[in-house]
């Protein structure tokens, strides 16, 4: 076994609202710690170089690329992953609208988009289409062309504001 993996770091942090204790090789990224040491496979990876946004999670409520954050840096802080978005009461409104509108095609980039969108709506409950584009511009999606994702975010935002909203007819059936 390689030299550098012999000495494990041992830390405690808040993960999806619960305190966790974990030991891991100190060079590991948060992405690796989540997937390999905490068995939370919901956080995906597309490059492991900070280029695609796929591995985004929330660290103290702010989106970070978990492939660029050392696991050690989360000590005493709070991490939220896609697994933490749903509660016993049901899916997060963003999860529901992403599922219902077809914003997740292959679904691989979806966890990253969901968390960045959650961060956006926490700061700005009524974002314009341009603000959504800006917020999501660090996340790549190869399936959707982003449009269903914008629509899902807008729909979730409206519902979180307490409005009764549905997708516009043209988004579902096309223009007449």
């Amino acid at each position: 076994m390689s030299e550098r993996t012999k000495q494990k770091a041992h830390i405690e942090f808040t993960l999806n609202g619960e305190t966790v204790e974990v030991a891991f090789a100190p060079h590991k990224t948060l992405l690796e710690v989540l997937r390999e040491d905490l068995n939370l496979m919901g956080t995906k990876h597309g490059c492991e170089l900070g280029e695609c946004g796929t591995c985004a999670v929330l660290l103290n409520g702010r989106s970070v690329l978990s492939c660029l954050v050392l696991g050690l840096d989360t000590e005493g802080r709070s991490v939220e992953t896609v697994e933490g978005m749903a509660s016993a009461a049901g899916l997060h409104p963003l999860q529901e609208t992403f599922a219902d509108t077809g914003a997740a095609q292959c679904g691989y980039c979806t966890p990253g988009f969901l968390l960045v969108a959650k961060e956006l709506l926490a700061a700005n409950p009524d974002p314009t289409r341009e603000e959504i584009k800006e917020a999501l511009s660090g996340n790549l999606c190869r399936c959707t062309g982003y449009i269903k994702i914008y629509e899902a975010v807008e729909l979730a935002a409206a519902r979180m504001r307490g409005e009764e909203a549905e997708l516009p007819r043209a988004a579902v059936y096309g223009l007449d």
Partner: peptide, 23 residues
């Protein structure tokens, strides 16, 4: 009709197992 996909919720909750998720 615009039903959601049968695997949509799994994909939006991190439950879908892609190849690299298999251990």
């Amino acid at each position: 009709k615009p039903f959601r996909k049968v695997d949509a919720r799994a994909k939006c909750t991190g439950q879908t197992k892609f190849a690299d998720d298999i251990v």
